[in-house]
Amino acid sequence: MSLVTATIKRDLIIAARNPGEWLNPLMFFLMVLALFPLAVDPDPKFLSKIAAGVVWVAALLATLLSLDALFKADVEDGTLEQWLASGESLYAMALGKVFVHWCISGLPLTLVAPLLALMMNLPDDAYAALFFSLLLGTPILSLLGAVGAALTAGVRSGGLLLSLVILPLYIPILIFGASAVYHAGIGMEYAGQLGFLASFLCISMTLTPFAVAGALKLNLSR
């Protein structure tokens, strides 16, 4: 077993023993959703109009929240040092870490979102679009977020900095993800938006691991 697969396995075991790691973002997701009807208007018609955007914004924020911890522990306890010492490719390691992150943040969000969208009175036709747009979009959130997490892993209280660095890069995903759901809700075609998300996913899967690998090396104490 290579160090990459061993690390994936190890991180999944850690997440299983620390349920907070994947449960907290989910609870945050639910709470953020609850804020909108309370702050704006609980009228079902109004909610169904904003549901697509609100669910996507909440998913994006929940992912952002979980990203801060992605590399922090590994930098602090010396795991990162051992990766570098092992001579295994950091590119593969970055992809492995992102995969684990998606499994414990993006995937649960994708599965739970349709249930929570019920509370937002999302139109019936939009559920498939919501599921598929999140399925394609959340891995991109994890990939781009990993760049920010790697850059800020050594910075004390890097959480806010991470948001500043990453949020502007999230805009295209938000635009196309939310619009896919909205268009599905008013009975229009949404394959184009999903196509954009799919191609963006391919680009980020090939390019971001380079940036993550480069950024991780900055965190070695000298």
Partner: peptide
């Protein structure tokens, strides 16, 4: 593969058992 490096940071994950930690260390 020919040298073993152990820094002053031990790379131990606290929620894992000694055996699980050791297993990860030798996975290469």
């Amino acid at each position: 593969r020919q040298r073993l490096y152990i820094g002053h940071l031990s790379a131990i994950k606290k929620v894992l058992t000694p055996l699980e930690n050791l297993r990860w260390f030798v996975s290469s």
